[in-house]
């Protein structure tokens, strides 16, 4: 490297004129700065190494371990809660099924009760209706009989009157027979 000697010279006034001086070669190959760079690099590396290995890395690994522990615990807790929730759900389902069967039973009971009541009422009503029907039929028969009798009487009387009005003498027996014959026909 021919540039070495010149750059060493220029290193002396490497201030405002440093830019001009560097045109002569790559700053990377300016060996006069190597001890300086290496010294400060070693200092930096040692400082970073101690900062990391003494303070930062133990702290971060502790935090990470703690977090992993917390997460494991949380997962276990979540698992437990899930189990509990499943239990609760089973209990709920059981209660629901019980309640449903109970309700079904009550409904069936009520239905049976109502049915029996209804049957009884129906029988009573039927009996009443039958009694009323019989009564009515009797009344109707009576009325009919009365009516027939009345009609016969009226017919007889009327026939007698008509015969009398025509100037004849009505024989009661004949009139009755005639009326009877008419009523039948």
């Amino acid at each position: 490297m021919a540039g070495e000697s010149t750059t060493v010279e220029h290193a002396a006034d490497a201030g405002a004129h440093g830019a001009e001086a560097s045109g002569a070669g790559m700053p990377q190959l300016d060996f006069s700065t190597f001890p300086n760079q290496i010294f400060w690099l070693v200092v930096t590396l040692v400082v970073i190494y101690f900062v990391l290995s003494r303070i930062a890395l133990p702290r971060i690994s502790a935090v990470l371990a703690e977090r992993a522990g917390t997460i494991t615990n949380d997962i276990a807790a979540a698992e437990e809660l899930k189990l509990k929730a499943q239990e609760a759900e089973a209990a709920y389902n059981q209660a629901l099924a019980d309640a449903r069967s109970e309700a079904n039973r009550i409904v069936a009971e009520a239905k049976a009760e109502i049915q029996s009541e209804l049957d009884a009422e129906m029988q009573k009503a039927d009996a009443e209706i039958a009694a009323k029907t019989a009564e009515s039929e009797k009344a109707i028969a009576e009325i009919r009989e009365n009516a027939v009798k009345s009609v016969t009487d009226v017919a007889k009387d009327t026939a007698k009157e008509i015969v009398a009005a025509l100037g004849g003498k009505a024989d009661a027996k004949t009139v009755t027979a005639a009326v009877k014959a008419q009523m039948k026909g």
Partner: peptide
């Protein structure tokens, strides 16, 4: 390549191994 020049932080002195640059 000027951006890679090693310069002393204080003054224009020569760069020794301990010079703050």
């Amino acid at each position: 390549l000027d951006q890679f020049i090693v310069k002393p932080l204080f003054g224009d002195g020569p760069i020794h191994w301990y010079t703050p640059t």
